[in-house]
Simulated scan of single mutants.
Amino acid sequence: LTVLKYFCVHVLQTIQGCEWDEITGEVVGFYQYGYDGEDFILLDLKKLTWIALKPQAVAIKQIWDADKDIIKTDEFYFNQIYPDWLKKYLRYENTPPSVSLLQKTPSSPVSCHATGFYPDRVDMFWRKDGEEIHEDVDHGEILPNHDGTFQMRVDLNISSVKPEDWSRYDCVFHLSDVKKDVITKLDKSEIRSNKGETRIIFDGNCILVVGLLLLLVCITGLFIWWKKQRLVKDKGNLIWRFHSL
């Protein structure tokens, strides 16, 4: 954060986070401010009080120490929330992503889709005969998942690829700092498509349409029957009145 004051530029820095010892399970949080490159004030998470590292920070310390609710909130985040996030992300780093081949229709590009990886420092591409290709390839953006992991896709236009050449193509997923890549061969039997789902939706629409037609026929038949009964009743009333005359 850069603050302008008396036409001079001052720099306010903050460092916050936590360290987790996997062996002992000890968690150490830290929350510190610096001003113009020098330590200024820090939060002692054990005593739950701010420590002024400069004489100018004493007044700020007194104000911040008086706000016990915020200090309690900081304690909760640094001792529970942040360590949980750290453990979760470390767990993700050791978990390989889920890579699958997707295709909307037989004429659509084949998407190599990877999800569940962390961090987002990845490279993903298509190869032919072991060499990376760029023609007929479309790279999608890296998108976040709801659990903090990421997903991405790379599309390959297969309209000009002969069926006998499919085995020459593969998709490579490379995660930064991980030596072993995830390689997925272009195999027609491994492609997941929504073709079957489309058929199910179409059948469901047909059933719905047929059901509405049957309901319409029933309503029409009931209306015709009611009109006939009303007509017979009206005729009977008319005949009765005629005889009454």
Rank of each mutant, 00 (worst) to 15 (best):
P109N: 09
Q103P: 02
K87C: 06
Y82L: 14
Y82H: 04
C112V: 00
P97S: 12
S100W: 02
T115F: 10
S98L: 12
K87F: 01
T115S: 15
C112N: 01
W126N: 05
Y92N: 04
P119C: 09
Y82P: 00
L102R: 15
L101S: 11
W85Y: 12
T115D: 12
T95R: 14
S111V: 00
V110W: 10
S107M: 02
T115E: 15
F125Y: 15
Q80N: 12
S107A: 08
M124R: 02
L102G: 03
H113K: 12
T95W: 04
L90F: 09
R91E: 13
Q80P: 00
N79Y: 06
S111G: 01
R91T: 12
D120H: 08
S111E: 09
S107V: 02
C112Q: 01
T105F: 10
P83K: 04
Y92C: 07
L102Q: 14
V122K: 12
W126S: 03
V99H: 08
P96H: 10
T95K: 15
P83N: 04
S108G: 00
Y82A: 09
F117L: 11
K104L: 12
D84Q: 11
R121I: 01
Y118F: 15
D123L: 05
Q80F: 04
T115R: 14
L90C: 12
S111L: 15
L101I: 07
N79E: 06
D123G: 07
R127W: 01
F117E: 06
T95M: 13
D120N: 15
D84W: 03
N79W: 02
E93N: 11
F117D: 07
P83M: 06
S100Q: 14
E93M: 15
D123F: 04
S98G: 07
C112R: 00
K88A: 08
Y118W: 15
R91I: 01
R127H: 04
Y118S: 13
V99S: 12
L86N: 06
P96V: 03
M124L: 08
